[in-house]
Write a protein that binds this DNA or RNA. Structure first.
Lengths: 232, 232
DNA sequence: CTAAACTGCAAACATCGTTCGCGGTTTTAT
DNA sequence: ATAAAACCGCGAACGATGTTTGCAGTTTAG
């Protein structure tokens, strides 16, 4: 009987997202900074020194204002991160039109996404945490669906395929960004015979330059092409 | 000519990892807490309230000591997170022995890993950040290699297959843990016709209960079985 | 036995995200 | 036109965080 801040109250509370929040009020002076400029400042800091360098004070200083002032535009630091995420995804424009070969189209999208991760490695940390998809994310998703339009399968399967594709892209991006290698110094290898044997063996040539395309091709044909038009 | 703290100095500096750091010195009193107890306290906090609840003070209070005292065991909070990660991976023991069917063996490992992610969702944030693999991670990797032993392909291909498998497992775990759905309230769907059409359509039955096995089977057979014994 | 090395602890430091109150500015309502 | 309301920028402050430091007590090496 207490706790009146539950949902479905008279003053319908918005979901507290940046995208539902009005860009500016209709009463006061015009804001000095745009959302895009704020996001760009955060992205510049993240590109230079990692996501940990993106503090409210650092972004505010880069913009020429103070930390408290940023809360006129954002309700939290997470809002800033979502702004940065969506602006980075906006760099994927212009979206390819895609021809009749849907697999080639998705592969092109995947390569663009991989390049984006290369330019902004911090996206690997932010993308899985986005609570509400921003406008650029929605547009990108719409493009994915458009390219998959000739595929005749259930809608849920397309969603799964898109999610799995972006996931696999992030896996490749992470391996490229991170050190990816083990730090085996001072490890007792006698207790791990198979690992020791694998390391004793020569690595075996370059690591298959086309592994990215190969993996996605395998995955997508297996997930989409093998299916009949079941379920609507 | 300043900055004498470069590498390769006379007092050979260890790589500053938890696993190379000695558990205890040989001079003072016996430490009051074990590494395992510290990791367990952190895991309990992370299981209960997420990784953000794992602060030095919180872990210290749970153990009955103070924050500063923890730095007798760890050199940073990241060390604590690596301790937690490796202890959680230790929950995968006992490792299955694996029969002659390597695909079934890897699938069993993958299911165990997925269940582990379900028990400890914070592992999704920590595992991709581990800088040096701990002993339990190494043992697990050795088991993966043992199960892949009958596969006749390059060592690098096995490494890639293992990495991709654990990656795909994390993707499924993330979809299970996160809300995964879009927050489409208040979005202008007219600008995204394909997304609007996909949402208008019925979802199309349950989301394929065997998608996990199917995906991994497709991926592993495509990555390993199709290859000849090239490269050593 | 002495000195070195180690432990636990409390206090302090710098930084972080966030809140609050102020004066000034723009719009709405009367 | 005038007053009230809503908004902006700003600086100071609050609580919490990771980490460092100095001190007293304890154990081992030489």
């Amino acid at each position: 009987m207490s706790d009146a801040r539950a949902n479905s109250r008279a003053g319908d509370a918005a979901p507290q997202s940046i995208w539902t929040r009005p860009v500016r009020g209709s009463r006061g002076p015009v804001p000095a900074y745009s959302r895009d400029a704020i996001a760009a400042a955060g992205i510049a800091l993240a590109d230079a020194d990692g996501i940990a360098a993106v503090s409210m004070r650092a972004v505010a200083t880069a913009l020429g204002t103070s930390a408290g002032s940023l809360y006129r535009y954002l309700s939290s630091r997470d809002d800033l991160l979502e702004l940065m995420t969506d602006r980075a995804i906006g760099e994927l424009r212009p979206h390819p039109s895609g021809g009749d070969d849907w697999l080639a189209g998705i592969l092109l999208l995947a390569r663009r996404q991989l390049a984006l991760y290369g330019r902004h490695p911090w996206l690997l940390d932010l993308l899985p945490r986005t609570s509400a998809a921003g406008p650029e994310s929605l547009a990108w998703f719409d493009t994915c669906l458009r390219i998959l339009e000739p595929v005749d399968c259930a809608t849920a399967a397309k969603f799964e395929a898109i999610a799995m594709t972006t996931g696999v892209v992030s896996l490749f991006a992470r391996r490229r960004a991170g050190s990816s290698s083990f730090a085996l110094t001072g490890v007792d290898l006698t207790a791990h015979p198979h690992l020791a044997a694998a390391l004793r063996r020569p690595v075996g040539g370059p690591p298959r330059a086309d592994l990215f395309d190969r993996t996605l091709r395998i995955l997508l044909t297996g997930l989409l092409a093998d299916e009949g038009p079941d379920h609507a």
